[in-house]
């Protein structure tokens, strides 16, 4: 009981220093998936509505999403030991 409560408290305030990179990786992967899927869906919608079901708008949307996620995670890695702050997640 005491152990769990203490760990919970520690977790709430700040991640443990050795788990810092792992967390960053978690965030990066999840944002990558979400943003690329969002871009893909936008691209599909555009292709259906405007581009007569061409393939390339879907690819472009996917690229947009993936690129955005990449950039974000890159920035978070570069920032060092500061905890991740994601607008989408929190």
């Amino acid at each position: 009981m005491a152990d769990s409560s203490e760990t919970r408290v520690a977790r709430a305030t700040k991640p443990v220093s050795e788990a810092l990179l792992n967390e960053k990786w978690d965030r990066a992967i999840s944002s990558m998936i979400i943003k690329s899927s969002l871009g893909l869906s936008f691209g599909v919608v555009f292709s259906v509505l405007l581009f007569k079901r061409r393939a390339w708008p879907a690819w472009v949307g996917l690229g947009f999403g993936a690129g955005r996620a990449w950039e974000e995670s890159d920035a978070s890695f570069r920032r060092g030991d500061s905890p991740v702050r994601d607008a989408l997640r929190r």
Partner: peptide, 18 residues
Amino acid sequence: SEVRKASLLPEDAGIASH
């Protein structure tokens, strides 16, 4: 183990280097 993972990182590393 964690430190070993990050042992090859340069000073200002992005996601690719990680």
